[in-house]
C-alpha cells in the first residue's frame, strides 16, 4: 500500500492531479481560517483571518531569498575543497 502511494506521488503523470489536490487544500485551509473562534488571540495578527497563510508564504519567500543572497553575496558558500590543502 505504501509503495503504491509513493509510486503514485512520484509518477510524473500524476503531477497535474497532485497539483489540483494541493490547490484545493490551500483554498480549504485558507477559507476554514475564517470560520474558527479566536478567543485566545492577543495580537492583531492573531485576530486576522488568513494571517497564517499570508505569514507562512511570506516567511518561506523571505527565508529562501535572504539565505541565498547571504550565501552567494556574503561569501558563505564555498567550493567543496575549500578546507583541503
Amino acid at each position: 500500500m505504501i509503495k503504491k502511494l509513493v509510486d503514485y506521488i512520484g509518477n510524473p503523470e500524476n503531477v497535474g492531479k497532485l497539483k489540483k489536490l494541493g490547490y484545493v487544500s490551500l483554498v480549504a485551509v485558507f477559507i476554514s481560517d475564517f470560520f474558527v473562534h479566536r478567543d485566545h488571540a492577543i495580537y492583531i495578527w492573531d485576530k486576522t483571518p488568513g494571517w497564517g497563510a499570508f505569514y507562512g508564504f511570506v516567511s518561506c519567500v523571505i527565508i529562501i531569498l535572504v539565505s541565498k543572497f547571504i550565501g552567494h553575496q556574503g561569501g558563505i558558500m564555498k567550493r567543496e575543497d575549500y578546507y583541503d590543502d
Partner: peptide, 13 residues
Amino acid sequence: TSALGILLFTGLG
C-alpha cells in the same frame, strides 16, 4: 487552521 495555513502556504512558496 493557522498552523496548517503557515505550513501549506510555505509549501506553495
